[in-house]
């Protein structure tokens, strides 16, 4: 059983090494002549304004909360989806009902303008 996870492990290891490799290589290969302008934070080519550790707008929090609810929904839908091919038809519709009830929540959020950036 663990053999199946071996591939996931290899995948995760490659995913971890892949972005680190250029950084490590640059550290050893790239010539370094720092000056004040080079050391500045890069932000789309424009000079950064103010401190980077600023307080974020509270509107992001609503998105995070809505995302959290739908993430928890996945916990219930994941076993349902895996056993999809052995389930009778009415059991499939129970899952659909589950999604529809939560879709009502999404509809509510949409109508209340929570998904709009004001």
């Amino acid at each position: 059983m663990l053999d199946q996870w071996l591939f996931v492990g290899i995948f995760v290891s490659i995913a971890a090494v892949f972005p680190l490799l250029p950084l490590v290589m640059a550290r050893f290969l790239a010539p370094r002549k720092p000056n004040r302008i080079k050391q500045e934070t890069y932000e789309c080519g424009i000079e950064t304004v103010g401190d980077t550790w600023v307080q974020f707008k509270i509107q992001y929090y609503v998105y995070a909360l809505v995302f959290l609810i739908f993430d928890i929904e996945t916990v219930f839908l994941y076993p349902w989806a895996v056993s999809f091919d052995v389930l009778p038809l009415f059991a499939v519709f129970e899952g659909v009902l589950f999604i529809l009830i939560l879709a009502a929540g999404l509809f509510y959020a949409w109508r209340k303008g929570a998904l709009e950036w004001s």
Partner: peptide
């Protein structure tokens, strides 16, 4: 997981 999924909606 299949058992869990079946039990959840049965």
């Amino acid at each position: 997981i299949v058992e869990l999924g079946t039990a959840l909606v049965s």
